[in-house]
Design a protein around this nucleic acid. Structure first.
Length: 121
DNA sequence: CATCTGACGACCG
DNA sequence: GCGGTCGCCAGAT
């Protein structure tokens, strides 16, 4: 698969929100899982307006190493994303990925609620 | 062709 | 919370 779809997806991450590599992989059904997402992001073309900094590790961990690590932190801060030393506050900024098929007006009498029942303690 | 190496993540101690 | 193992997969050596 071309990373194209991945980059497009990343671009629709709203400002002030973040996604994890795993989320990305699951949302796009990337073969190989999160690692594939990581590889895609590592190859993300710079200067294309791709908010790569909004993709973080599981649980909001910042995995990128210098020199980009600091850049990412800076970018995240510029979006006023709450973060600790190496962790983004997912409670506040984890993007609730919208169901892609919501765009179709018909057929969606009632989108089956499939909200993952994950919730903190 | 054999290995190593990650912008990963779930698990376990 | 931290570090090690294992599954995963494409490039680089």
């Amino acid at each position: 698969m071309s990373w194209n779809a991945v980059y497009r997806f990343v671009q629709r991450i709203p400002r002030g929100r973040v996604l994890t590599y795993g989320d990305l992989a699951r949302a796009l059904r990337l073969p190989g899982g999160a690692r594939t997402a990581g590889r895609a992001m590592a190859a993300s073309p710079s200067g294309k307006g791709i908010p790569w900094h909004r993709v973080v590790g599981a649980g909001g961990s910042l995995l990128i190493r210098e020199p980009y690590a600091s850049l990412q932190r800076k970018l995240l801060e510029s979006e006023q994303i709450a973060m600790s030393e190496r962790r983004v506050n997912m409670k506040l900024h984890h993007w609730k990925v919208p169901n892609k098929k919501v765009l179709r007006k018909k057929t969606s009498r009632k989108a089956k609620a499939r909200t993952s029942s994950k919730h903190p303690s």
